[in-house]
Simulated scan of single mutants.
Amino acid sequence: MRNNIYVLHERGTVSHFIGLEYYASTVNADVQFREFSITRFLLKSIFRLDYNLFIKQIKNIIFLISLSFTSKRTVIVGIAPLDWRMVFLRFLLKGHRVFYFTSWSDWSGKYYPKKKLNSCHFIRKTWRKFLEEDITGVFSVTNTGLKSLTKHYKIKVSTSVVYHSYKKLETHAIPTEFSDKIKLIYVGRLVKEKGIKELIELIKKLDPTKFSLTIVGAGELKPLVEKNAKEISNIEYKGFISSKKDLWKLFHAHDVQLLFSRKSDRWEELFGMVIIEAMANGVITISTNHSGPKEIIDHNINGFIIPDDSSLIENTKEILENKLSNLEYLKEQAEIKAVKYSAKNISFKWKSLLNE
């Protein structure tokens, strides 16, 4: 009989647990994903007559109720810092083998992603008890986040840094005509905080005979991207690509990924899956200096880190025009670094705690 490892999160991304799934496959276990954010999506499923979404919420409800009548299940909880729903989850999780999973990088209290009730003394006390008394272990996506967490809370259990990981896909590059152009690419949400406007401003300042830009993704700034792709000869918009294999083919045909994430009081780039996926395909990344990218990219070795400030465009332009004479070496180093984040290697990080 196969054992179950449950991942309980709000509306998390399954791709963040590739390393965990690899580990589970080696110990005859299954990873089951459940969500605690139910009400809104249950109503949505009813109003839209979405059968699959409805069944998913029913499964979530049954799972949460079942926690009260069972014990010793292995549950990995991914929930944003100081989320008020911890009050209820903590009660349901009693008697189970609970691990906390987080990608949050700053536990100092300066800012948290959840604003609702996060200043409430009772909520803060509940979270402190959960982290300091209830859990069996902590999985953090970055060293930065783990150091901050252990600095501000008395974590008595074992911890492990489980970077996001990828499955290696065997692909062949999309055939392209030979060109001396450096092929730039952006993959992600088309929203303000991802620096889309700055991306377009940059390409306008680059020599179109030397640089081209491919944009992949969807979001509120899609009309802006489409407009500029029509007007500027060296911008190509591919839309949203759901197939990971197709995305890897596209990466393989490019040289440099641009990641202009802009930090706000509620968000920063906490890891950057597209960075390790690009690296695995020999694509270097130029990224703003957010906590996640800084931990992945070795500046001027397998990519570049630039300040998230008003000089972003000029700093990137300087790198592209004057610091890529050794581009092939940088690309090789990116592929070497990517191995660190393979599903197999990251699975050992999960194993170190789950096997205790």
Rank of each mutant, 00 (worst) to 15 (best):
G109T: 07
T209H: 11
I275K: 03
I297Q: 00
F91G: 00
S212M: 03
H254T: 15
M1S: 12
L224F: 10
G19I: 01
I123M: 09
H252R: 13
L270G: 04
I38G: 02
V27Y: 13
E132S: 11
C120S: 15
V157F: 06
S325K: 12
I182N: 10
H152C: 02
N143A: 00
E21Y: 02
G239R: 05
T288F: 06
I305T: 08
V27P: 09
T102Q: 07
P223H: 10
L250P: 01
F240A: 10
N326W: 12
D207A: 03
W104F: 11
A334Q: 04
I38C: 06
V75I: 13
I46D: 07
S261C: 14
H121I: 14
G272T: 12
Y111A: 08
F122R: 14
L146N: 06
E35F: 11
T209L: 11
E10F: 05
T39E: 11
S311T: 15
S108N: 06
S158N: 13
K154D: 15
N234Y: 11
I297T: 01
V216D: 04
L8G: 01
L131Q: 05
I38A: 08
I38T: 09
F54L: 13
A24P: 00
T288E: 09
F271R: 05
G109R: 09
S68C: 13
F240E: 08
L93E: 04
R2V: 11
I182P: 10
G239H: 04
K317R: 14
F348C: 03
N302I: 09
K340R: 12
W84E: 13
G217E: 06
V161E: 09
V27S: 11
K110Q: 12
F99V: 02
L324K: 05
L169S: 06
F271L: 08
M86F: 04
K227R: 09
N143K: 06
Y51N: 07
I135T: 09
N3T: 10
V191E: 13
S212E: 12
N302S: 10
L320M: 08
S37E: 13
W267M: 07
N281Y: 08
R97Y: 04
E335P: 01
K294P: 02
A280D: 12
S160M: 04
K294T: 12
S342W: 10
S310L: 06
F47R: 08
E321A: 09
V87D: 08
F240G: 00
V14K: 15
E226Q: 15
S179V: 10
T39M: 07
S103Y: 07
V162R: 01
L184W: 01
R124D: 10
L92G: 09
F69S: 05
F54C: 01
R124P: 10
S71N: 15
G217L: 11
L92V: 07
G109N: 06
I215V: 13
E295R: 09
N281R: 10
W104N: 00
Y163V: 01
L353D: 10
K151I: 03
W350R: 01
N322P: 04
E201H: 15
S311V: 07
S68T: 11
L93T: 07
L353S: 08
T214G: 12
Y23L: 05
N345W: 00
I241Y: 01
L131D: 03
C120F: 14
D207I: 05
V77H: 01
E268S: 03
N28S: 14
Y166E: 09
